[in-house]
Amino acid sequence: MAVSGFNRLFEGGRNIMRSYLMIVLLLLDIYCRCVIGYLSSPHVGQDPPYTAQQNPVMSSPVALTASSVVSAVGGENYTARCPSDGLCTKLPAECISCSYQHNCTYGQPTNYSCTTKPNIRCVNESGEHQQNFTLTVDCRFCWQLDSSQYRCSNSTSCMTVSCPRRRYNATCEVLEHVHCLGKRVFHKRLFCNWTGGYKWSTALALSITLGGFGADRFYLGQWREGLGKLFSFGGLGIWTLIDVLLIGVGYVGPADGSLYI
């Protein structure tokens, strides 16, 4: 009789250990899929790798950038944004017209012939007024600039907490005083990077201390999951443990799809 009871107790303990082992393996599988999925995701939209030999030459004629964008903002209104009697080489790109049809070596400073637009007055280093001048610009297309040299639109409708991380189609515009080849307005695929103000440390602290009552899910705006944890006492502790791990690795995030701060 005692042996039979011991066997049942032993079997029960073994079943519990097996259940916990399966949960741990499941969490490890989720984490590995997350990491592997992110590392293997194609980086579409990033600057294409430069594989040519040293000192590549750009020989194709590039119709100008600097001036072609007087565009949409409205005809002759550019004069209001162009400083009067300032240095010609410091004028914003929309104030001048340059000829970018010369061969140049990528990344190397190159001199281009530029002309001020009508009604624009500028001076050289000696203070003399001039209309035609030479501008030194690095031989680089606008989409190859450093990210600090252009502004891109942001999106608050894409999910930032996902594996692999999601991207959105952004419209980028070069800063007005930066000169480059090609179109000054271009498109890129960027990672979703907006935030709704939720703190990862707060979510993790709530998950560890009050996770059995669903406080972590309520904080993240996941009301249905929060109610489920509340009325199931944190899934008898199992759901609580799982959420601590998932929030800890960043797999579970705000319901609005934003990043933690």
Score class of each variant (00 low, 15 high):
residue 105 T to N: 09
residue 107 G to N: 07
residue 107 G to R: 13
residue 134 T to K: 14
residue 107 G to Q: 08
residue 159 M to N: 14
residue 104 C to I: 05
residue 123 V to A: 01
residue 150 Y to L: 00
residue 120 I to G: 00
residue 113 S to M: 12
residue 109 P to N: 06
residue 144 Q to C: 08
residue 111 N to E: 09
residue 149 Q to C: 06
residue 161 V to A: 08
residue 143 W to V: 05
residue 117 K to T: 04
residue 100 Y to G: 02
residue 161 V to Y: 04
residue 161 V to R: 13
residue 119 N to M: 12
residue 138 D to F: 10
residue 137 V to M: 14
residue 152 C to R: 03
residue 111 N to G: 00
residue 121 R to N: 15
residue 165 R to T: 04
residue 138 D to W: 05
residue 146 D to K: 15
residue 162 S to P: 03
residue 103 N to V: 05
residue 160 T to H: 08
residue 136 T to S: 12
residue 120 I to A: 02
residue 163 C to L: 02
residue 99 S to H: 03
residue 127 G to W: 06
residue 115 T to D: 01
residue 130 Q to G: 09
residue 100 Y to S: 08
residue 164 P to N: 00
residue 112 Y to N: 03
residue 142 C to F: 13
residue 98 C to M: 02
residue 133 F to I: 05
residue 128 E to P: 04
residue 158 C to K: 08
residue 107 G to I: 05
residue 111 N to P: 02
residue 149 Q to H: 12
residue 105 T to Q: 13
residue 165 R to P: 09
residue 120 I to D: 00
residue 132 N to S: 11
residue 133 F to T: 03
residue 112 Y to F: 15
residue 138 D to Q: 11
residue 155 S to D: 05
residue 139 C to V: 11
residue 139 C to T: 11
residue 124 N to H: 06
residue 105 T to R: 14
residue 165 R to W: 15
residue 110 T to R: 07
residue 131 Q to T: 14
residue 123 V to Y: 05
residue 99 S to Q: 07
residue 132 N to M: 08
residue 161 V to L: 07
residue 127 G to I: 04
residue 164 P to S: 00
residue 116 T to Y: 02
residue 99 S to G: 02
residue 129 H to C: 00
residue 158 C to Q: 10
residue 165 R to E: 02
residue 152 C to S: 03
residue 130 Q to H: 10
residue 134 T to M: 12
residue 147 S to G: 04
residue 152 C to W: 10
residue 103 N to D: 14
residue 105 T to E: 15
residue 123 V to E: 01
residue 116 T to F: 04
residue 164 P to H: 00
residue 151 R to S: 12
residue 149 Q to F: 11
residue 102 H to D: 06
residue 96 I to N: 01
residue 106 Y to Q: 14
residue 142 C to T: 12
residue 145 L to C: 07
residue 114 C to F: 05
residue 142 C to N: 11
